[in-house]
């Protein structure tokens, strides 16, 4: 009994020690956002400043149009996540449950695109954006983001759907339903943990995406958060770090909220999914 208690204590100690290590950078981020701009390279460097100031937050929130970038990012991220959830889950449903010509090729292609680095696709994708008149439009980001997140999302959701017994589907077909009815009444509700788990990944991907947004968007009032934050980096090696870190802290909030909101689905969404088979 005694050893078991000791063991338990040890487990908690190790876990807490790990948390301390992993959260130090976060702590540093928050503390830096609370100090005045000039004192970043003070000596001795302090993990927590003597004098806290909310000046950086005040500046970021009220003196610049930071909130607009925030709303832009929110719009793009939420739209992408919702659309991607439907598109990827329906694609995953088709791949998991039906046979059709070219199916294996399609799945192989989806897997293969997870491997090609997206960086150099910017030039051909930009030409596409021009053709479809998507340049300098906030909504123009969305189809490309959806295309980016679809492979991984489809792969994960497909694995999860394969774990759902097909008997449910058959019952619907017996009642005269079609594939769409099955998708709506069986797959969407039952695969929702997996869709939620994937959506967290997708939200984060879109929320922090930088090179593509930078390429497509021009106008100040259309910019997303990462572009606005990078706008605070000066040309001559001069950066007002206090502002940058204050914006970073604010931009973390939605992701944290999103995670807290969905996290209970997280484990179950992954557990019976692709990773266990």
């Amino acid at each position: 009994m005694k050893t078991a208690k000791k063991y338990k204590l040890l487990v908690y100690l190790i876990l807490i020690f790990g948390v301390v290590i992993t959260s130090t950078p976060m702590l540093y981020l928050i503390s830096t956002s609370l100090r005045p701009n000039g004192s970043l390279y003070e000596y001795p460097p302090k993990l927590w400043p003597d004098k806290l100031t909310f000046e950086n937050y005040r500046y970021v929130l009220f003196k610049v149009d930071f909130y607009r970038s925030f709303l832009n990012s929110l719009f793009v991220a939420i739209t992408t996540v919702l659309l991607a959830a439907f598109i990827a889950s329906s694609l995953a449903f088709c791949l998991a449950r039906f046979d059709f010509p070219g199916k294996n090729l399609l799945f192989a292609a989806i897997m293969a695109t997870m491997i090609i680095p997206g960086m150099t696709l910017i030039i051909p994708q930009f030409e596409l954006a021009v053709t479809f008149k998507l340049v300098n439009k906030l909504g123009g980001l969305i189809p490309f983001y959806i295309a980016w997140v679809i492979p991984f999302s489809t792969f994960m959701i497909k694995g999860y759907i394969e774990g759902i017994p097909a008997d449910f589907d058959e019952a619907i077909y017996m009642d005269g339903g079609n594939a769409f009815t099955v998708y709506r009444t069986i797959i969407l509700p039952l695969a929702s943990p997996s869709i939620a788990a994937v959506s967290i990944f997708n939200f984060l991907t879109v929320w922090e995406e930088y090179p593509w947004a930078l390429t497509v968007l021009n106008d100040l009032e259309k910019r997303t958060l990462p572009i606005t934050i990078s706008g605070f980096f000066g040309q001559h090696n001069f950066t007002l770090w206090g502002y940058v870190f204050a914006m970073s802290v604010i931009s973390l909030l939605p992701v944290i909220i999103c995670f807290l909101f969905f996290q209970k689905y997280f484990i179950s969404g992954l557990s019976s999914g692709a990773i266990n088979h």
Partner: peptide, 19 residues
């Protein structure tokens, strides 16, 4: 299978065109 095509098409189109 029309419902199937309806489900397959959006993903397929986005994937082919933008990727």
């Amino acid at each position: 299978n029309y419902p199937l095509i309806f489900l397959l098409l959006p993903g397929l189109m986005v994937f082919l065109l933008f990727t």
